[in-house]
Structures are given as structure tokens and as C-alpha cells.
Computed example of a mutant assay.
Amino acid sequence: MEERLVPVNALLGLCTPNDINPAVLTRAGFRIVGLEITVACSAGGRVTIDVVLLNEAESHLVFCECKSGNNIENEQAERYGMIDPKSVVTAAAITLSNREPLTSEVLYVCLADKSDRVIQGLDSISADYALLTVGDSEVTLRRAGKASKILRDAFPGGSVKLLAPPARIIDFDHDSPASVFVDKLRPYLIKAAARRTEEISVPRIAEDLCVHYRRYQQAVRQQIAKRFQTALRQLSAEEPDTYRYEQSPGGGPEGVVRLLRTPEEFDHRGRTVAYQSLARVSRRRRGRSVDPNQLDLLADVEGSSELEDPSEPSDDEEEGLEGEEAS
């Protein structure tokens, strides 16, 4: 997992019931309602919120900025303080059942060893945001006095002990290298072919392989789909007898990949020929002395009917042919 995704995964883990680590945010009534949500700020400009949390019972939103480095972006941090919660509800298509007025706050999330520098950056611009720090064995709410009571109640002792490092809930995203998408697709397509699947759409692939895909804003979903399209084109070029990518009319992320053969057909003939080749090598080596009490493995392989190619004559047939030619 890329280091930049560790803070995001730690936060998502606290919202994931039945995980090995305690889901303290879920217990406090929070759930994930948006990832990579871009909104306009009241004083101009735009900001992209990494994770949006909602406590529906309290009509309370938390805008989370996840940092893996030492420094904050001052302009970005200032814009976080200008977000209208209603604009986030619209941008993330959040459905609200509670009619109470919306409230919101900003939460920064960072790696524990970078927390002092992040706090220094927030203080330098007088940003009154709480900070969640992530370590291998603990998650701590720092600057708790700047957090809402709703958020503080999720961390009654200030810290949460982790039984294991943050899970790899999201191990790639739209900013990951192209090779990651190819690596994700190979085993996925092999399993699909084993199930005799004939074709799969790009949106289906994205939903299956990208956790929380539907929580991303539409523009980000399109970026992820395009990365999968590029990876499918590469695989189709590398293995044209196995995969064929077909773009939908008019473009867009609705293309499909066709699976042209199953794993049972991958190099099956080649595997048989390879064993026969080994057997032929063993015949050429039979002039050497062999202990009669030892098992000749290659001889056993040579005599196995499962490994013989019906398109080639057997040893007996070869001798018979030679005799006919001699006569």
C-alpha cells in the first residue's frame, strides 16, 4: 500500500465494522458518504475533500483532509474553513433524513511521526482544526479542544489502540501508477475466464476492484474507469488471443473486455509437448548404468498415457513404421 494512502485507510478502518481494529467512528454514529469530493468555497476557489463523514442522527458532517507528508498546503487549509455544508451534500449526492440544520467541522488526518509539523502548519494560519494521528498501534485525536463534542465522543480516552496496522481497504486510486491497474486486472480476468464469463464491462470491473468506488465523485469515477480502459488495452495488445477490449460507441467508460479463452486452454498443448520433450531426453540418456532397484521417474513419465500426444506415433508405432520401410 502506498504511504500516501495510509491515513485514508486508517480513517476508513475506524468506520468499518467487523474489522480487527475497533470501528469507533461507526459506534459514534458516523459513516462514509463521500471520497474525493470537490466543492466550491464561499470566498472563491475550490477544494477537494478526501473523505466526508456523516453523523445522520446529529446532522453533522466532518470534512477530512488526509496527509502523508510533513507540510500542509496553506491555501487549501484556509479554503476548508470556507466550505458550505450544503454544497457538500449536493456534490456528494448525500441523502438526509434528519431535518435538523446541518453542522460541520474539519479534521486533518496524518501519520503520527509527521504530526508535530502538521500542527505547526495549522497554527501558523490559525486553523482551528482537530488532528487525528495514525501510528502502527494507535490512533490519537490531538487538538481535541478544537473538535466537536460529537467527534470527541468517538475517542473518549483520546486514543484508540490498534490490534493491527491499518488495513489495506483502499490500496490504489486514480492517482496510482498505470502498472497497478494492470496488476489488479490479471488475476481478476483469469478468475472471470475460469467461470466461463464471456465479457465484462469497465464499470463492473471498477466496482469489483475499487473499494468504495460509488463513494467517489463522478469525475473521479471516470478517471478510475479510464485507467482500467488503458490497462485493458495493454493486456489486449500483449495477449490478443486471450483478451479483446472493445470501446463503446461514442467513447466513455462503458467499454467491455471479451474473454476469448479459459485458463484450461492456456498453454495446455505446450505443457504436454514439454513433458514429451523430457521423455525423449531420457531415452537418449539410457546408455548410462541405472540401479534396477531405483525408480526411473522420467521413464515413468514417458510411459504415462496422459502425457502422450495422440497426434504423434508411439514408440511401438515408430518401430512398426521403420520395419515397413525396411521391407
Rank of each mutant, 00 (worst) to 15 (best):
Q247G: 13
S97K: 10
A237I: 08
V182G: 00
T95M: 11
D113T: 09
D123N: 15
D316F: 12
P101I: 07
H268R: 13
A10N: 01
V301C: 10
S311N: 12
I205L: 09
I20A: 12
G255H: 02
G13H: 02
I200N: 06
Q229D: 10
L54G: 05
T90I: 14
F30E: 06
C210I: 12
N21C: 06
P7Q: 07
G135H: 07
A23V: 02
F181W: 02
S282V: 03
E36L: 02
G45V: 04
S179T: 14
V281R: 13
V211L: 12
Q247A: 15
R214P: 00
Y216E: 01
I200W: 02
S148A: 13
Q229F: 00
D19K: 06
E322W: 08
V62Q: 01
A279Y: 06
G34K: 03
L14Y: 05
H174V: 05
Q229G: 06
A28Y: 05
S59I: 03
V301D: 01
L295Q: 13
L189Q: 06
D128C: 11
Q120H: 12
G158C: 09
N21P: 04
K86H: 15
L102H: 03
Q234E: 15
Y216N: 06
A225P: 00
P166N: 07
T95Q: 15
P310R: 13
L189C: 01
T90F: 08
M1F: 07
S305G: 09
E264L: 12
E199W: 14
S327L: 14
P313A: 09
E246V: 15
S289K: 14
A127G: 03
K226T: 14
R196N: 14
Q276F: 00
A193F: 00
A91P: 02
L185M: 06
E65Q: 13
L12T: 04
E318N: 11
T230H: 10
D183I: 05
R284L: 14
Q276C: 09
G157D: 15
L189E: 05
E308Y: 05
V290E: 12
